[in-house]
Design a protein around this nucleic acid. Structure first.
Lengths: 170, 170
DNA sequence: AGGTAAATGAGAATCATTTTTATTTAGATT
DNA sequence: AATCTAAATAAAAATGATTCTCATTTACCT
């Protein structure tokens, strides 16, 4: 996926994991949540932290049972919910599709640009839009507490593929 | 729900139904969709057109069975899906909540500001945000095909209620 | 080590939505 | 107007994501 230079107000977000998630760190994340440090939570959290961004509960569950086949999916869902409630994880819901989760801590707020075809996700942040949103809420007398901004379109590589398809082809 | 004056770039959308949805009009909407004009579709469409905006499939179904108790909910869902596919109706999904539908034809594109507490929905349109979105997609090499912008917060009346609640109360 | 509230696994429950299937019907064709 | 046929329907079952229940197990405070 090609990415072009951003304007001054829109920034690319660094999605690389340049932090070492060692045992004690993972432990203290759970402890700081006010929860008991269990083997299952350790496994789930490690998988979440080292796995792909924007993972579904199902995908995470599948990663998790490779390390402990007896771990139940209810446990994964339960823990994800707690992580979401404590804003350590961001839940992204697109249409009626399964929710996707991503580690949110120490990561700036951002929105998503998703390819309708292949699902490739770009993250971006735009102060100007954030500001306009607050303005709009204020104009209606609302206190803004959150927002969802999901753009979708065709990514560069899917645009090429589209062009190659015979007319009328799905 | 109180509404304040909007800035020059953000406009209130007229949600009033100042059009007469008579029998022949409703019929031709269905016929123009390339579908057969059935009594059930007539009922569903009339309910949709005269009922509240941002209705759920369930709410619509309940309105519909008042006119014909034998009408099944699958029929409502099926028809809503077809209306959505033909862009006559817009489907709005918030979190994991049931989808809400609204008549989209002849209505300008707009986004939503929803009260987390009471579900009150304000509609707005902001050209500046629309423009910024296109810009962002372009910067990533994407062709923008759509977007979801859902703001949520506390509406004026729920802000008052919040203040009245005893501390710790749900 | 022992007690207890919290956490777990397994599976059932839920909820919105979709699919299936046998039956009915709209509307084109005689 | 009667006939035909693909499309539409009702009803119920299926689906898929997520949540709940509950009997059992476990973390961790004393």
């Amino acid at each position: 996926m090609r990415m072009q230079k951003q304007t001054e107000t829109t920034e690319l977000i660094n999605t690389k994991r340049n932090f070492k998630w060692d045992e004690p760190t993972v432990k203290s994340i759970i402890r700081d949540m006010g929860l008991k440090v269990t083997q299952q939570r350790m496994i789930i959290l490690k998988c979440l932290l080292s796995g792909r961004d924007h993972i579904t509960a199902q995908e995470l569950f599948e990663a998790v049972i490779k390390k402990d086949p007896s771990l139940g999916f209810a446990t994964v869902y339960r823990f994800l919910k707690q992580l979401t409630e404590q804003d350590l994880v961001t839940e992204v819901r697109m249409g009626g599709l399964p929710a996707r989760y991503e580690w949110a801590k120490k990561k700036k707020h951002h929105d998503h640009l998703t390819c309708k075809q292949c699902g490739a996700i770009c993250e971006f942040e735009n102060q100007q839009i954030e500001l306009l949103q607050k303005q709009i809420a204020k104009n209606f007398g609302y206190i803004l507490t959150g927002h969802i901004l999901e753009l979708y379109g065709l990514c560069p590589s899917c645009q090429k593929e589209e062009g190659l398809l015979p007319i009328g082809d799905t």
